[in-house]
């Protein structure tokens, strides 16, 4: 298997590489072998097929962001490559490059630039709203709007502005993720917990959370429903939580609360 990159590099040198062979470079990147990937993509960038060359240049940019130690020079070079790709056409590498420009400004450069990150994400969403790249950018843009931009505005206003992103979420899991981001911000800014309940119910319905995140959502719905006096809904979600997470640390408390919710109202002790 170790011979594969060598063979590919030979093919690249001979100018006979087709787009499909760049897969080896992506697989090397996914396997944390950025050096190997960089060599494959560097050779691929010289391929005569423009589509192959563009994908290879994107690969180079991603590899530069992954090759250890990542230097400021590498990040600058990745940004330069991504800018050229993003401005050079409407294909997948262009959208991916725009997405990466947002991520570079958000997390990869030494001093994050939330405004620039948001600008890139908004451009991407405006250009290809339904694409994987725009859909992936939505929840990350939401975080910028909730925690890093317009900090002079009250949190409730930032939340209201961020809720508008929901209309652009076409993938159910992306919408679910946005609802979770909104609920978490409501909790973090200590706004009334009841405001988070509709978001959590939507997130539970739409998906988008992993197993641990889903457990959070189920308990949170149950608890907020209990506090709102919706005993039936609270019981339903305590039950669901216990069924899906028989070994969670909150199980004892959840079982006690479920018993309270299922008891006749007069006999149930008051909530906190």
């Amino acid at each position: 298997m170790r011979m594969l990159p060598t063979v590919l590099l030979g093919l690249l040198a001979a100018g006979s590489l087709a787009g499909g062979e760049l897969t080896a470079g992506w697989q090397a990147l996914a396997g944390y072998r950025a050096d190997e990937a960089l060599k494959i993509f560097a050779a691929g960038a010289r391929a005569p097929d423009p589509a192959v060359a563009r994908e290879a240049r994107l690969g180079q940019a991603v590899a530069l962001l992954a090759k250890q130690p990542v230097t400021a020079g590498q990040v600058d070079e990745a940004r330069r490559v991504c800018t050229a790709l993003a401005d050079g056409g409407p294909d997948d590498p262009a959208l991916a490059a725009r997405f990466l420009l947002g991520r570079i400004a958000q997390h990869h450069q030494e001093r994050p630039d939330p405004a620039e990150a948001a600008r890139q994400f908004r451009r991407l969403i405006a250009a290809a709203e339904a694409s994987t790249w725009a859909q992936s950018a939505l929840s990350r843009l939401a975080l910028l709007q909730l925690y890093a931009l317009d900090l002079a505005r009250p949190p409730a206003e930032r939340l209201a502005a961020t809720e508008k992103l929901l209309a652009q979420a076409h993938v159910p899991a992306v919408a679910g993720e946005l609802h979770v981001a909104l609920a978490e911000a409501i909790f973090f800014y200590r706004l009334p917990g009841a405001q988070a309940l509709p978001h959590l119910l939507a997130a539970e319905r739409l998906g988008g959370t992993d197993r641990v995140g889903r457990a959070d959502v189920l308990v949170q719905i149950a608890e907020l429903s209990r506090l709102a006096g919706n005993r039936a809904q609270a019981a339903k979600y305590y039950r669901q939580f216990l069924q899906e997470n028989p070994r969670d640390s909150a199980n004892y408390t959840a079982r006690r609360r479920l018993a309270d919710m299922e008891a006749p109202p007069a006999a149930a002790p008051g909530g906190r």
Partner: peptide
């Protein structure tokens, strides 16, 4: 980030995810 983008392009076009 890098792993997610690599995973997207490493997959066959028909099997690429609708979110990273």
């Amino acid at each position: 980030d890098g792993i997610a983008v690599a995973g997207y392009f490493a997959a066959a076009p028909a099997q690429r995810p609708d979110r990273l």
